[in-house]
């Protein structure tokens, strides 16, 4: 059984037939080959699989494909599709806000969503927004530094 869904992926209208018993994460990684989104735990505890849905970070491992219909989904691949890194991406590079990099797409997307909502979050707000994404390498201090740098609070 497939379901046709009409959705927007990284700004492009995308009409695809999906198996509705798959998760959004599976569709993104395996059907649309957007493998920048990773799975860390599969049960919504690690935040590794975060993508933006209508601008809001969500755990894509807990969403069935049918729920992507009518949504605007953004994945890490969408942030630099013009060939230029975004401000957040550049700040991550500059400050060294990544180690193994497995959580980085989720961190970058979540920080991007936060900064769109609030141009100048303070350290506590940044921590709260990123609190659902685990980084086992413990890149947290430099991730915080990177986001604050973009927010203008770090200057």
């Amino acid at each position: 059984m497939t379901f046709r869904i009409d959705t927007t992926i990284n700004g492009d209208r995308t009409v695809i037939d999906v198996d509705p018993t798959l998760t959004l994460l599976e569709v993104l990684r395996e059907q649309l080959l957007l493998s920048g989104t990773k799975e860390g735990c599969g049960v919504g505890e690690c935040g590794t699989c975060v993508v933006l849905c209508d601008g809001e970070p969500i755990a894509s491992c807990l969403v069935l494909a049918g729920d992507a219909a009518g949504c605007s989904i953004e994945t890490i691949e969408g942030l630099a599709d013009s060939g230029e890194l975004s401000d957040v991406q550049r700040a991550f590079v500059r400050t060294g806000a990544l180690q193994c990099g497995f959580c980085t797409p989720a961190m970058v997307l979540t920080a991007t969503a936060l900064l769109r909502e609030d141009a100048a979050p303070d350290a506590e707000e940044v921590k709260k927004a990123l609190g659902g994404i685990l980084c086992r390498c413990g890149a947290y201090p430099k991730i915080l530094e990177a986001v604050l740098e973009v927010s203008g609070e770090g200057a």
Binding site: S35, E39, I76, L98, G101
Partner: peptide, 21 residues
């Protein structure tokens, strides 16, 4: 020197290919 990591662009863009990929 504090040289930017050579793997960082691949990692912030999601292009890095891990074992799971």
């Amino acid at each position: 020197n504090r040289v930017a990591r050579v793997d960082s662009v691949d990692k912030v863009t999601g292009r890095a290919v891990y074992g799971v990929d």
